[in-house]
Simulated assay, not measured.
Amino acid sequence: MARSVNNGSDLICIFFGWTIILGIFVLAPVLIVLFGYPSSPSFSVNLFDNQALNMTKAYEPATNFTIHFDLKLKNRNKAIGIHYPDPINITFSYFPNVSFLVTLAEYKLDSFYQGNKKTRHVRDVVEVNGFPTVLEGTNMIAFRVDLVGTYRYKKAGTKRHKVELGCVVSVDYTSSNKMQTGFIELVEPGLDSNLHVKNFTPQYQYYGGR
């Protein structure tokens, strides 16, 4: 009887041993993906959402122009939170021509923490003095949004990562309609395209030179 009990115990030990080994082989790649190679956060913006733009009053005396924006910050990681330890600086500008950029307003977002797979919307308004002019040679106003900040993953031994992103949003001066709708992803300056007037497709282009 004692031998039978021992054999049963041995089988149970072997079963649990193989279960643990298989669990390690299955879980290890998943844990490496989740914690070893975290994804950077994504940023996108929607300018003038639900805002009626009246460009025909642009040059009337004492005209105050406001920029309504909805900035979306998304943590794409399922298992890692993200700290934004420093204020995030956002600059709103426009192109009077292809080689010059004029700053309209600046906005600062205080530091915060973002949990796993969380998305934060920052909806606000900035007021500018004066009014942007059309892009030379076109009938549209080419706005640009720049974002500069830092982030750090919530895990041991991680350092701060700097992020510098931007996008271009255009508005038809005659109709006051945006040429792109919804959120536009902010991209790295290394993904720049040349800002040619005749072939200007702002939903895909971002001019990095300041």
Rank of each mutant, 00 (worst) to 15 (best):
I141D: 12
I141P: 11
A142I: 12
F143V: 08
F143T: 07
F143C: 08
R144A: 10
R144G: 10
V145N: 02
V145S: 06
D146I: 05
D146H: 09
D146A: 10
D146K: 13
L147N: 06
L147D: 05
L147Y: 06
L147I: 09
V148A: 12
V148P: 00
G149A: 12
G149S: 14
G149V: 03
G149W: 02
T150D: 11
Y151S: 09
Y151T: 10
R152F: 00
Y153Q: 04
Y153M: 06
Y153C: 03
Y153W: 13
Y153S: 04
Y153H: 09
K154Y: 00
K154H: 07
K154F: 01
K154G: 00
K155R: 15
K155A: 12
K155E: 09
K155D: 05
K155C: 07
A156Q: 13
A156I: 15
A156D: 13
A156W: 15
G157L: 11
T158G: 01
T158M: 13
T158L: 04
K159E: 11
K159H: 14
K159C: 08
R160L: 08
R160G: 04
R160M: 07
R160C: 03
H161T: 15
H161L: 12
K162W: 00
K162F: 01
V163K: 11
V163E: 11
V163L: 14
E164C: 09
L165N: 01
L165Y: 02
L165Q: 02
L165T: 01
G166L: 12
G166N: 07
C167V: 08
C167T: 14
V168M: 15
V168H: 03
V168S: 14
V168Q: 12
V169M: 03
V169T: 08
S170V: 11
S170E: 10
S170K: 04
V171A: 02
V171C: 03
V171N: 03
D172C: 12
D172E: 13
D172K: 11
Y173S: 04
Y173R: 01
